[in-house]
Design a protein around this nucleic acid. Structure first.
Lengths: 229, 229
DNA sequence: GACGATTTAGACAAGAGTGTCTAAATTTGT
DNA sequence: ACAAATTTAGACACTCTTGTCTAAATCGTC
Protein backbone atom coordinates (compact mmCIF):
# COMPACT_ATOMS: atom_id res chain seq x y z
CA UNK A 1 0.00 0.00 0.00
CA UNK A 2 1.37 3.39 -1.01
CA UNK A 3 1.33 6.10 1.58
CA UNK A 4 1.31 9.37 -0.31
CA UNK A 5 -0.88 11.38 2.00
CA UNK A 6 -1.32 15.07 2.48
CA UNK A 7 -0.95 15.65 6.23
CA UNK A 8 -2.84 18.47 7.90
CA UNK A 9 -0.98 21.34 6.30
CA UNK A 10 2.56 20.61 7.51
CA UNK A 11 4.12 18.69 10.38
CA UNK A 12 2.40 19.92 13.55
CA UNK A 13 4.56 21.95 15.89
CA UNK A 14 5.05 21.15 19.55
CA UNK A 15 4.58 18.16 21.77
CA UNK A 16 0.91 18.70 22.54
CA UNK A 17 0.05 19.54 18.97
CA UNK A 18 1.51 16.22 17.89
CA UNK A 19 -0.48 14.31 20.48
CA UNK A 20 -3.63 15.98 19.20
CA UNK A 21 -2.81 15.32 15.59
CA UNK A 22 -2.09 11.68 16.32
CA UNK A 23 -5.37 11.08 18.13
CA UNK A 24 -7.30 12.86 15.41
CA UNK A 25 -5.77 10.91 12.57
CA UNK A 26 -6.04 7.68 14.52
CA UNK A 27 -9.75 8.29 14.99
CA UNK A 28 -10.21 8.73 11.26
CA UNK A 29 -8.19 5.66 10.35
CA UNK A 30 -9.73 3.40 13.00
CA UNK A 31 -13.13 4.43 11.66
CA UNK A 32 -12.32 3.85 8.02
CA UNK A 33 -10.40 0.60 8.42
CA UNK A 34 -11.51 -0.89 11.70
CA UNK A 35 -9.14 -1.74 14.53
CA UNK A 36 -7.52 -4.69 12.77
CA UNK A 37 -7.23 -2.90 9.46
CA UNK A 38 -5.83 0.31 10.88
CA UNK A 39 -2.19 0.72 10.00
CA UNK A 40 0.13 2.60 12.32
CA UNK A 41 2.24 3.77 9.41
CA UNK A 42 -0.83 5.23 7.77
CA UNK A 43 -1.91 6.96 10.96
CA UNK A 44 1.57 8.40 11.30
CA UNK A 45 1.54 9.63 7.72
CA UNK A 46 -1.88 11.26 8.10
CA UNK A 47 -0.83 12.86 11.35
CA UNK A 48 2.33 14.20 9.75
CA UNK A 49 4.44 12.43 12.35
CA UNK A 50 6.89 9.56 12.39
CA UNK A 51 5.77 6.15 13.52
CA UNK A 52 8.16 6.15 16.43
CA UNK A 53 6.51 9.29 17.80
CA UNK A 54 3.23 7.43 18.04
CA UNK A 55 4.88 4.69 20.05
CA UNK A 56 6.58 7.31 22.24
CA UNK A 57 3.23 8.90 23.02
CA UNK A 58 0.90 5.95 23.34
CA UNK A 59 2.87 2.76 23.79
CA UNK A 60 0.99 0.45 21.45
CA UNK A 61 -1.94 0.18 19.09
CA UNK A 62 -4.43 -0.89 21.74
CA UNK A 63 -3.57 1.94 24.12
CA UNK A 64 -3.83 4.36 21.22
CA UNK A 65 -7.30 3.04 20.45
CA UNK A 66 -8.43 3.47 24.03
CA UNK A 67 -7.08 7.01 24.08
CA UNK A 68 -9.01 7.78 20.91
CA UNK A 69 -12.31 6.54 22.31
CA UNK A 70 -11.84 8.32 25.66
CA UNK A 71 -11.06 11.52 23.80
CA UNK A 72 -14.07 11.29 21.54
CA UNK A 73 -16.43 10.41 24.38
CA UNK A 74 -15.26 13.39 26.36
CA UNK A 75 -15.57 15.85 23.51
CA UNK A 76 -18.97 14.53 22.43
CA UNK A 77 -20.33 14.66 25.94
CA UNK A 78 -19.15 18.22 26.38
CA UNK A 79 -20.90 19.15 23.15
CA UNK A 80 -24.12 17.44 24.12
CA UNK A 81 -24.31 19.07 27.53
CA UNK A 82 -23.51 22.46 26.04
CA UNK A 83 -26.38 21.91 23.62
CA UNK A 84 -28.76 20.67 26.32
CA UNK A 85 -28.10 23.95 28.09
CA UNK A 86 -29.79 25.66 25.15
CA UNK A 87 -33.02 23.70 25.62
CA UNK A 88 -36.03 26.04 25.40
CA UNK A 89 -37.29 25.99 28.99
CA UNK A 90 -39.58 28.95 28.44
CA UNK A 91 -40.40 28.68 24.77
CA UNK A 92 -41.88 31.53 22.79
CA UNK A 93 -42.82 29.52 19.73
CA UNK A 94 -42.63 25.94 20.99
CA UNK A 95 -42.41 24.31 17.59
CA UNK A 96 -39.72 26.62 16.26
CA UNK A 97 -37.75 26.40 19.50
CA UNK A 98 -37.81 22.61 19.57
CA UNK A 99 -36.79 22.45 15.93
CA UNK A 100 -33.91 24.75 16.72
CA UNK A 101 -32.88 22.55 19.62
CA UNK A 102 -33.08 19.40 17.54
CA UNK A 103 -31.06 21.05 14.83
CA UNK A 104 -28.32 22.12 17.22
CA UNK A 105 -28.24 18.63 18.71
CA UNK A 106 -27.91 17.01 15.33
CA UNK A 107 -25.44 19.43 13.80
CA UNK A 108 -23.19 19.87 16.82
CA UNK A 109 -23.28 16.46 18.46
CA UNK A 110 -24.57 13.70 16.23
CA UNK A 111 -23.65 14.58 12.67
CA UNK A 112 -20.36 16.31 13.31
CA UNK A 113 -17.02 14.65 12.92
CA UNK A 114 -16.64 13.52 16.52
CA UNK A 115 -20.17 12.19 16.74
CA UNK A 116 -19.88 10.17 13.57
CA UNK A 117 -16.53 8.75 14.59
CA UNK A 118 -17.62 7.81 18.09
CA UNK A 119 -20.77 6.18 16.85
CA UNK A 120 -18.89 4.13 14.33
CA UNK A 121 -16.23 3.02 16.79
CA UNK A 122 -18.89 1.92 19.24
CA UNK A 123 -20.68 -0.01 16.56
CA UNK A 124 -17.62 -1.72 15.16
CA UNK A 125 -15.45 -2.35 18.20
CA UNK A 126 -17.95 -2.18 21.05
CA UNK A 127 -17.86 -5.88 21.73
CA UNK A 128 -14.06 -5.99 21.76
CA UNK A 129 -13.77 -3.59 24.74
CA UNK A 130 -16.78 -4.17 26.99
CA UNK A 131 -15.51 -2.07 29.91
CA UNK A 132 -14.55 0.86 27.72
CA UNK A 133 -17.96 0.99 26.13
CA UNK A 134 -19.81 0.34 29.33
CA UNK A 135 -18.06 3.48 30.51
CA UNK A 136 -19.26 5.31 27.40
CA UNK A 137 -22.78 4.06 28.00
CA UNK A 138 -22.82 5.41 31.53
CA UNK A 139 -21.21 8.70 30.68
CA UNK A 140 -23.07 9.15 27.40
CA UNK A 141 -26.69 8.00 27.05
CA UNK A 142 -26.82 7.25 30.76
CA UNK A 143 -26.35 10.92 31.56
CA UNK A 144 -27.64 12.75 28.52
CA UNK A 145 -30.97 10.97 28.20
CA UNK A 146 -32.09 11.77 31.74
CA UNK A 147 -30.91 15.34 31.28
CA UNK A 148 -33.08 15.75 28.20
CA UNK A 149 -35.96 13.95 29.92
CA UNK A 150 -35.74 16.42 32.79
CA UNK A 151 -36.09 19.30 30.38
CA UNK A 152 -39.18 17.77 28.83
CA UNK A 153 -40.62 17.16 32.29
CA UNK A 154 -40.14 20.83 32.99
CA UNK A 155 -42.00 21.76 29.81
CA UNK A 156 -44.82 19.46 30.83
CA UNK A 157 -44.91 20.92 34.32
CA UNK A 158 -45.00 24.39 32.77
CA UNK A 159 -48.09 23.39 30.83
CA UNK A 160 -46.51 23.31 27.39
CA UNK A 161 -46.76 19.57 26.89
CA UNK A 162 -48.82 16.58 28.02
CA UNK A 163 -46.40 13.82 28.88
CA UNK A 164 -46.82 10.73 31.03
CA UNK A 165 -43.27 9.41 31.02
CA UNK A 166 -40.57 12.00 30.31
CA UNK A 167 -37.92 9.33 29.73
CA UNK A 168 -39.98 7.69 27.02
CA UNK A 169 -40.81 11.08 25.53
CA UNK A 170 -37.14 12.06 25.41
CA UNK A 171 -36.12 8.90 23.60
CA UNK A 172 -39.01 9.21 21.20
CA UNK A 173 -38.10 12.83 20.54
CA UNK A 174 -34.63 11.75 19.50
CA UNK A 175 -36.02 8.88 17.45
CA UNK A 176 -38.46 11.11 15.61
CA UNK A 177 -36.01 13.86 14.94
CA UNK A 178 -33.58 11.41 13.35
CA UNK A 179 -36.18 9.18 11.72
CA UNK A 180 -35.28 10.24 8.20
CA UNK A 181 -31.51 10.11 8.68
CA UNK A 182 -31.15 6.45 9.63
CA UNK A 183 -30.06 5.09 6.27
CA UNK A 184 -27.44 7.78 5.83
CA UNK A 185 -26.27 7.19 9.40
CA UNK A 186 -25.71 3.53 8.64
CA UNK A 187 -23.55 4.18 5.65
CA UNK A 188 -21.60 6.84 7.51
CA UNK A 189 -22.32 9.43 4.87
CA UNK A 190 -22.44 13.16 5.44
CA UNK A 191 -25.77 14.90 5.62
CA UNK A 192 -26.79 18.05 3.83
CA UNK A 193 -28.08 20.72 6.17
CA UNK A 194 -31.47 20.80 4.54
CA UNK A 195 -31.93 17.07 5.10
CA UNK A 196 -31.26 17.52 8.79
CA UNK A 197 -33.66 20.47 8.92
CA UNK A 198 -36.36 18.51 7.13
CA UNK A 199 -36.07 15.56 9.45
CA UNK A 200 -36.03 17.78 12.54
CA UNK A 201 -39.05 19.73 11.34
CA UNK A 202 -41.10 16.66 10.53
CA UNK A 203 -40.05 15.02 13.76
CA UNK A 204 -40.94 17.95 15.98
CA UNK A 205 -44.31 18.40 14.25
CA UNK A 206 -45.22 14.79 14.93
CA UNK A 207 -43.89 15.05 18.47
CA UNK A 208 -46.14 18.03 19.12
CA UNK A 209 -49.13 16.35 17.54
CA UNK A 210 -48.64 13.60 20.09
CA UNK A 211 -47.63 15.57 23.16
CA UNK A 212 -48.52 19.21 22.48
CA UNK A 213 -51.47 20.91 24.12
CA UNK A 214 -54.49 21.17 21.85
CA UNK A 215 -53.72 23.97 19.39
CA UNK A 216 -55.71 27.19 19.29
CA UNK A 217 -57.40 28.10 16.01
CA UNK A 218 -54.73 30.73 15.36
CA UNK A 219 -51.76 28.42 15.80
CA UNK A 220 -53.48 25.70 13.82
CA UNK A 221 -53.74 28.15 10.95
CA UNK A 222 -50.10 29.07 11.23
CA UNK A 223 -49.21 25.36 11.32
CA UNK A 224 -50.98 24.58 8.09
CA UNK A 225 -49.61 27.72 6.44
CA UNK A 226 -46.10 26.46 7.20
CA UNK A 227 -46.83 22.89 6.21
CA UNK A 228 -45.67 23.37 2.62
CA UNK A 229 -42.00 23.86 3.65
CA UNK B 1 -4.26 -17.33 17.88
CA UNK B 2 -5.49 -20.82 18.85
CA UNK B 3 -8.36 -22.17 16.85
CA UNK B 4 -10.08 -24.73 19.05
CA UNK B 5 -13.63 -24.13 17.96
CA UNK B 6 -16.75 -26.26 18.16
CA UNK B 7 -18.17 -26.29 14.64
CA UNK B 8 -21.90 -26.55 14.08
CA UNK B 9 -22.36 -30.11 15.31
CA UNK B 10 -20.03 -32.02 12.97
CA UNK B 11 -18.61 -31.39 9.49
CA UNK B 12 -21.58 -30.53 7.26
CA UNK B 13 -22.45 -33.12 4.62
CA UNK B 14 -22.77 -32.34 0.96
CA UNK B 15 -21.60 -29.63 -1.39
CA UNK B 16 -24.48 -27.22 -0.81
CA UNK B 17 -24.47 -27.74 2.92
CA UNK B 18 -20.83 -26.73 3.01
CA UNK B 19 -21.47 -23.61 0.98
CA UNK B 20 -24.21 -22.66 3.43
CA UNK B 21 -22.09 -23.36 6.44
CA UNK B 22 -19.22 -21.31 5.04
CA UNK B 23 -21.36 -18.28 4.32
CA UNK B 24 -22.97 -18.49 7.74
CA UNK B 25 -19.72 -18.71 9.63
CA UNK B 26 -18.16 -16.04 7.45
CA UNK B 27 -21.01 -13.67 8.28
CA UNK B 28 -20.43 -14.19 11.98
CA UNK B 29 -16.67 -13.74 11.77
CA UNK B 30 -16.82 -10.71 9.47
CA UNK B 31 -19.21 -9.12 11.95
CA UNK B 32 -17.15 -9.88 15.01
CA UNK B 33 -13.74 -9.01 13.58
CA UNK B 34 -14.37 -6.72 10.64
CA UNK B 35 -13.20 -7.44 7.12
CA UNK B 36 -9.52 -6.90 7.83
CA UNK B 37 -9.59 -8.79 11.11
CA UNK B 38 -11.52 -11.75 9.78
CA UNK B 39 -9.32 -14.81 9.50
CA UNK B 40 -10.00 -17.40 6.82
CA UNK B 41 -8.63 -20.16 9.02
CA UNK B 42 -11.06 -19.16 11.74
CA UNK B 43 -13.99 -19.08 9.34
CA UNK B 44 -13.01 -22.53 8.09
CA UNK B 45 -12.79 -23.87 11.64
CA UNK B 46 -16.18 -22.42 12.61
CA UNK B 47 -17.74 -23.77 9.43
CA UNK B 48 -16.27 -27.22 10.10
CA UNK B 49 -14.53 -27.15 6.73
CA UNK B 50 -10.97 -26.98 5.50
CA UNK B 51 -9.52 -23.69 4.33
CA UNK B 52 -8.99 -24.98 0.81
CA UNK B 53 -12.71 -25.69 0.49
CA UNK B 54 -13.44 -22.04 1.09
CA UNK B 55 -11.08 -21.08 -1.69
CA UNK B 56 -12.65 -23.71 -3.95
CA UNK B 57 -16.10 -22.26 -3.36
CA UNK B 58 -15.47 -18.55 -3.31
CA UNK B 59 -12.09 -17.77 -4.81
CA UNK B 60 -10.83 -15.22 -2.34
CA UNK B 61 -11.67 -13.26 0.78
CA UNK B 62 -13.24 -10.35 -1.02
CA UNK B 63 -15.53 -12.52 -3.15
CA UNK B 64 -16.52 -14.39 -0.02
CA UNK B 65 -17.45 -11.12 1.66
CA UNK B 66 -19.58 -10.05 -1.28
CA UNK B 67 -21.34 -13.40 -1.26
CA UNK B 68 -22.09 -12.98 2.44
CA UNK B 69 -23.64 -9.55 2.01
CA UNK B 70 -25.70 -10.59 -1.01
CA UNK B 71 -26.98 -13.59 0.92
CA UNK B 72 -27.92 -11.57 3.98
CA UNK B 73 -29.61 -8.85 1.95
CA UNK B 74 -31.70 -11.41 0.14
CA UNK B 75 -32.77 -13.27 3.27
CA UNK B 76 -33.56 -10.07 5.17
CA UNK B 77 -35.59 -8.63 2.33
CA UNK B 78 -37.60 -11.81 2.05
CA UNK B 79 -38.31 -11.63 5.78
CA UNK B 80 -39.33 -8.00 5.64
CA UNK B 81 -41.71 -8.46 2.74
CA UNK B 82 -43.23 -11.51 4.37
CA UNK B 83 -43.81 -9.40 7.46
CA UNK B 84 -45.20 -6.45 5.52
CA UNK B 85 -47.76 -8.86 4.10
CA UNK B 86 -49.13 -9.20 7.65
CA UNK B 87 -49.79 -5.47 7.94
CA UNK B 88 -53.26 -4.86 9.41
CA UNK B 89 -55.11 -3.38 6.45
CA UNK B 90 -58.49 -3.77 8.12
CA UNK B 91 -57.62 -3.49 11.78
CA UNK B 92 -59.96 -4.58 14.52
CA UNK B 93 -58.10 -3.01 17.39
CA UNK B 94 -55.78 -0.59 15.63
CA UNK B 95 -53.37 -0.14 18.54
CA UNK B 96 -53.03 -3.84 19.25
CA UNK B 97 -52.69 -4.67 15.57
CA UNK B 98 -49.99 -2.09 14.97
CA UNK B 99 -48.10 -3.25 18.05
CA UNK B 100 -48.28 -6.77 16.73
CA UNK B 101 -46.98 -5.65 13.37
CA UNK B 102 -44.13 -3.68 14.93
CA UNK B 103 -43.25 -6.65 17.06
CA UNK B 104 -43.11 -9.02 14.11
CA UNK B 105 -40.99 -6.56 12.18
CA UNK B 106 -38.54 -6.21 15.02
CA UNK B 107 -38.33 -9.84 16.00
CA UNK B 108 -38.24 -11.35 12.53
CA UNK B 109 -36.31 -8.78 10.54
CA UNK B 110 -34.37 -6.31 12.65
CA UNK B 111 -33.33 -8.08 15.81
CA UNK B 112 -32.80 -11.55 14.40
CA UNK B 113 -29.43 -12.95 13.47
CA UNK B 114 -29.51 -11.93 9.82
CA UNK B 115 -30.75 -8.46 10.56
CA UNK B 116 -28.09 -7.77 13.15
CA UNK B 117 -25.35 -9.11 10.91
CA UNK B 118 -26.43 -7.20 7.84
CA UNK B 119 -26.78 -3.97 9.80
CA UNK B 120 -23.33 -4.33 11.25
CA UNK B 121 -21.69 -5.17 7.94
CA UNK B 122 -23.29 -2.13 6.34
CA UNK B 123 -22.12 0.08 9.16
CA UNK B 124 -18.57 -1.21 9.24
CA UNK B 125 -17.76 -1.92 5.61
CA UNK B 126 -20.30 0.18 3.75
CA UNK B 127 -17.76 2.70 2.54
CA UNK B 128 -15.39 0.03 1.28
CA UNK B 129 -17.91 -1.36 -1.25
CA UNK B 130 -20.03 1.54 -2.48
CA UNK B 131 -21.72 -0.37 -5.33
CA UNK B 132 -22.56 -3.34 -3.14
CA UNK B 133 -24.23 -1.18 -0.55
CA UNK B 134 -25.89 1.06 -3.08
CA UNK B 135 -27.49 -2.16 -4.28
CA UNK B 136 -28.57 -2.94 -0.72
CA UNK B 137 -30.00 0.53 -0.34
CA UNK B 138 -32.11 0.15 -3.46
CA UNK B 139 -33.27 -3.36 -2.70
CA UNK B 140 -33.69 -2.77 1.04
CA UNK B 141 -34.94 0.59 2.34
CA UNK B 142 -35.64 1.73 -1.20
CA UNK B 143 -38.29 -0.97 -1.58
CA UNK B 144 -39.44 -1.68 1.95
CA UNK B 145 -40.07 1.91 3.03
CA UNK B 146 -42.45 2.71 0.18
CA UNK B 147 -44.18 -0.62 0.76
CA UNK B 148 -44.81 0.27 4.39
CA UNK B 149 -45.80 3.82 3.44
CA UNK B 150 -48.37 2.43 1.02
CA UNK B 151 -49.94 0.41 3.83
CA UNK B 152 -50.20 3.46 6.03
CA UNK B 153 -51.70 5.42 3.14
CA UNK B 154 -54.32 2.71 2.86
CA UNK B 155 -55.11 3.00 6.56
CA UNK B 156 -55.46 6.75 6.16
CA UNK B 157 -57.68 6.34 3.11
CA UNK B 158 -59.79 3.90 5.08
CA UNK B 159 -60.32 6.55 7.74
CA UNK B 160 -58.24 4.93 10.46
CA UNK B 161 -55.47 7.54 10.48
CA UNK B 162 -54.90 11.18 9.64
CA UNK B 163 -51.67 11.39 7.67
CA UNK B 164 -50.37 14.05 5.35
CA UNK B 165 -47.24 12.35 4.06
CA UNK B 166 -47.27 8.53 4.23
CA UNK B 167 -43.53 8.30 3.57
CA UNK B 168 -42.73 10.51 6.52
CA UNK B 169 -45.24 8.66 8.67
CA UNK B 170 -43.69 5.31 7.77
CA UNK B 171 -40.18 6.40 8.69
CA UNK B 172 -41.42 7.97 11.90
CA UNK B 173 -43.30 4.80 12.76
CA UNK B 174 -40.07 2.83 12.48
CA UNK B 175 -38.17 5.47 14.43
CA UNK B 176 -40.71 5.50 17.24
CA UNK B 177 -41.02 1.76 17.48
CA UNK B 178 -37.25 1.39 17.87
CA UNK B 179 -36.67 4.54 19.89
CA UNK B 180 -35.80 2.66 23.06
CA UNK B 181 -33.57 0.08 21.41
CA UNK B 182 -30.98 2.39 19.87
CA UNK B 183 -28.27 2.00 22.48
CA UNK B 184 -28.51 -1.76 22.45
CA UNK B 185 -28.48 -1.70 18.65
CA UNK B 186 -25.24 0.24 18.66
CA UNK B 187 -23.46 -2.21 20.89
CA UNK B 188 -24.81 -5.14 18.92
CA UNK B 189 -26.33 -6.71 21.99
CA UNK B 190 -29.29 -9.04 22.01
CA UNK B 191 -32.65 -7.75 23.14
CA UNK B 192 -35.00 -9.36 25.59
CA UNK B 193 -38.46 -9.87 24.19
CA UNK B 194 -40.07 -7.67 26.80
CA UNK B 195 -37.80 -4.76 25.88
CA UNK B 196 -38.88 -5.03 22.26
CA UNK B 197 -42.52 -5.22 23.33
CA UNK B 198 -42.19 -2.21 25.60
CA UNK B 199 -40.56 -0.11 22.89
CA UNK B 200 -43.15 -1.16 20.31
CA UNK B 201 -46.02 -0.43 22.67
CA UNK B 202 -44.76 3.00 23.63
CA UNK B 203 -43.92 3.79 20.01
CA UNK B 204 -47.32 2.79 18.66
CA UNK B 205 -49.15 4.72 21.40
CA UNK B 206 -47.27 7.89 20.53
CA UNK B 207 -47.77 7.25 16.83
CA UNK B 208 -51.51 7.00 17.36
CA UNK B 209 -51.61 10.10 19.53
CA UNK B 210 -50.10 11.93 16.59
CA UNK B 211 -51.89 10.30 13.68
CA UNK B 212 -54.89 8.46 15.11
CA UNK B 213 -58.42 9.72 14.72
CA UNK B 214 -59.78 11.51 17.78
CA UNK B 215 -60.53 8.78 20.28
CA UNK B 216 -64.06 8.05 21.45
CA UNK B 217 -64.71 8.28 25.17
CA UNK B 218 -64.76 4.48 25.37
CA UNK B 219 -61.41 3.92 23.71
CA UNK B 220 -59.90 6.80 25.66
CA UNK B 221 -60.95 4.98 28.81
CA UNK B 222 -59.42 1.74 27.60
CA UNK B 223 -56.23 3.56 26.67
CA UNK B 224 -55.77 5.03 30.13
CA UNK B 225 -56.68 1.73 31.75
CA UNK B 226 -53.82 0.07 29.83
CA UNK B 227 -51.38 2.88 30.43
CA UNK B 228 -49.94 1.28 33.54
CA UNK B 229 -48.29 -1.57 31.61
C1' DG C 1 24.91 29.49 20.33
C1' DA C 2 24.59 25.52 23.34
C1' DC C 3 22.27 22.04 25.82
C1' DG C 4 18.74 18.54 26.81
C1' DA C 5 14.65 16.63 25.13
C1' DT C 6 12.10 15.21 21.40
C1' DT C 7 11.53 13.63 16.81
C1' DT C 8 12.95 11.34 12.68
C1' DA C 9 14.20 7.81 9.09
C1' DG C 10 15.47 3.54 8.40
C1' DA C 11 16.74 -1.09 9.40
C1' DC C 12 15.37 -5.03 11.78
C1' DA C 13 13.30 -9.48 13.96
C1' DA C 14 9.23 -11.84 14.87
C1' DG C 15 4.73 -13.10 13.86
C1' DA C 16 0.51 -13.57 11.34
C1' DG C 17 -2.36 -14.05 7.25
C1' DT C 18 -3.33 -14.88 2.29
C1' DG C 19 -3.48 -17.67 -1.45
C1' DT C 20 -1.24 -21.76 -4.00
C1' DC C 21 0.10 -26.36 -4.48
C1' DT C 22 0.32 -31.33 -3.71
C1' DA C 23 -0.83 -35.92 -2.63
C1' DA C 24 -3.83 -38.55 0.07
C1' DA C 25 -8.46 -39.38 1.84
C1' DT C 26 -13.23 -39.11 1.44
C1' DT C 27 -17.66 -38.61 -0.55
C1' DT C 28 -20.99 -39.01 -4.40
C1' DG C 29 -23.35 -40.98 -8.21
C1' DT C 30 -24.07 -45.00 -10.82
C1' DA D 1 -17.95 -51.51 -5.92
C1' DC D 2 -15.90 -48.26 -9.14
C1' DA D 3 -14.83 -43.84 -11.08
C1' DA D 4 -15.17 -38.99 -10.80
C1' DA D 5 -15.50 -35.18 -8.07
C1' DT D 6 -14.74 -33.08 -3.88
C1' DT D 7 -12.47 -32.35 0.37
C1' DT D 8 -8.58 -32.45 3.41
C1' DA D 9 -4.10 -31.52 5.84
C1' DG D 10 0.02 -29.67 5.48
C1' DA D 11 3.79 -27.27 3.53
C1' DC D 12 5.02 -23.28 1.17
C1' DA D 13 6.26 -18.46 -0.68
C1' DC D 14 5.00 -14.01 -0.19
C1' DT D 15 3.40 -9.89 1.84
C1' DC D 16 2.20 -6.97 5.44
C1' DT D 17 2.35 -5.30 10.19
C1' DT D 18 3.82 -4.58 14.75
C1' DG D 19 7.02 -3.05 17.90
C1' DT D 20 12.16 -2.25 18.91
C1' DC D 21 16.46 -0.22 18.17
C1' DT D 22 19.93 3.15 16.59
C1' DA D 23 22.17 7.20 15.15
C1' DA D 24 21.32 11.53 13.18
C1' DA D 25 18.49 15.65 12.92
C1' DT D 26 15.50 18.99 14.85
C1' DC D 27 13.27 21.68 18.37
C1' DG D 28 12.63 24.49 22.59
C1' DT D 29 14.80 27.11 25.93
C1' DC D 30 18.08 29.51 28.27
Amino acid sequence: MKLHVSPDIFPPRGHEAKRLSIVDSAAAVFCREGFAGANIDLIAAEAGVSRQTIYNHHGDKEKLFVAVVRDLTERCNAGIFATIATFPDQPGDLEADLIGFALRLNQNCICNRDGKFLRKLIQTEGERYPELFAEWREQGPGRTWPAIAARFARLAYGGYLTIEDPDVAARQFLGLVNAELQTTFMLGGSLREDEVLQSATNGVRTFLRAFGKRRSAASAEKQSALAGA
